[in-house]
Amino acid sequence: MMRWLILLLLPCVAAAGPDTLRVATFNTELQRDGPGLMLRDIRRDKDPQIAAVVEVIRQIAPDVLALQGIDWDYENQGLNALVERIENTGLIYPYRLSLRTNSGLASKLDLDGDGRLGGPGDSQGYGSFTGQGGLAVLSRYPIDTDAVRDLSPLLWQELPGAVLPAHRGAPFPSAQAQAAQRLSSTAHWIVPIDLPSGPMQLMTFQAAPPVFDGPEDRNGLRNRDEIRLWRVLMDGKLGAAPSKRFVIAGGANLDPWDSDGRSETIRSLLADPRLQDPAPHSKGAAQAADQGHKTPNARDTVDWERAGRLRVDYILPSSDWTIADSGVFWPASNDPGHAVALQASRHRLVWVDLRLD
């Protein structure tokens, strides 16, 4: 039992006000190596990482929470078990969304070009089983599930302006693979939520890492287009464009300046006049040793062993919101919650408070 975490820690972030909506995104990294293992570990209530994830969520208490790194199953037993653990702390989420993602979705093709079939790289999104490391949305307010738009089936080649990988002038890994390859490595969802002040749309995703490929830059190009999808959507080239009160929240896997991928893509999204970048920051990241990066240390949202600290997790409200506050849950080393933030995930929870007037 890890309930001592809750007893020892005091809240580090003030609760959102009554006229404020707190939106958060959190890559929990709770995915496991096999189907059902995340559910098993949650129910056993002995895993310190799971306890830490629950504690981080409790301390921030978002009204709307986009989760990544959550294994999907047909009956949503894993997500429901996690929500039960969260609700045991007094934080209630009556509305939730979990759909099958592209991660681990078998293709029967050689999608990664390694000359073999059936590996995790041959799934529509990297994964050893369907839904490994998927997405979920938790909300205190009703989700209009009938109106959810799931863009995950969109083929990569169907995205306007897509650039697909090539090797020696030929499609990589093959024309047949590109004809079947979906764009979303995990998913892209547009989730309508009914707020007291009116409807909003949560646009959530988790992009592929732009590395772990070859000179064809398959992952780098895919990451580019997964991020660029949101601008194409706002341009009205993928059906109805969101008109007002929307929020992009999720994982881009790309830093504006310091990643190995095509960083100009995320810079273009951050600079889009239809969006706002709250530039959330934390004391924990600010006090860490300087890496010589161009992105300010305080804005980092992940701490990877080799790549170091980067800003890769984002909440970008549309320009018609009024931003009240924002932050990254990464307390300073001498503040309550620091050890729990590090225990929960290499990623940190990012949150933004929006005025409901």
Rank of each mutant, 00 (worst) to 15 (best):
S259G: 11
G337I: 01
D33T: 14
M234I: 10
E226W: 01
L221V: 12
D71R: 01
V64K: 03
N223R: 10
W230G: 02
L65K: 03
V13K: 13
S263A: 08
I323E: 13
L67N: 07
A240K: 12
L67S: 04
P196V: 06
G161L: 10
P280Q: 10
A241D: 09
L138Y: 01
V54M: 00
G36W: 07
L159M: 08
P336K: 08
G239Y: 14
P331G: 07
A341N: 06
R116P: 02
R348G: 13
P94E: 10
E305G: 13
D71Q: 06
Q181W: 05
G214I: 04
P48H: 01
P165N: 13
P215L: 06
S184Y: 02
V312K: 14
N88R: 15
L233E: 07
Q132T: 02
G90V: 00
A147T: 11
A339L: 13
A106I: 13
L30A: 09
I60Y: 00
P256V: 05
L154K: 06
D33V: 10
R274A: 15
L275T: 07
V23C: 01
A175P: 04
P215M: 09
P256D: 00
M200E: 04
I42E: 02
L183V: 08
P317G: 11
V302T: 15
P242W: 03
L99M: 09
P256A: 10
L342D: 14
Q59L: 05
S139A: 10
G17P: 05
L151V: 07
A147M: 04
R346G: 09
R299P: 05
V340R: 00
Q178F: 07
Q124V: 08
Q291L: 14
I248L: 15
N27A: 14
H188D: 01
E264G: 14
L9E: 15
W230L: 05
I57D: 09
V312D: 10
G133H: 08
L65P: 03
F172T: 10
P210T: 01
S185P: 07
P336E: 09
R140F: 08
G284E: 09
W189N: 06
G198C: 11
P215H: 02
V211D: 14
I266D: 12
A81Y: 00
D320G: 03
D150F: 06
T89P: 01
W257P: 00
W189T: 10
L111G: 12
D255L: 03
R306L: 08
G34H: 09
L202Y: 02
V137S: 06
A24K: 02
S184D: 12
P171W: 01
S103I: 06
R100F: 07
G121S: 02
A147C: 05
P336N: 08
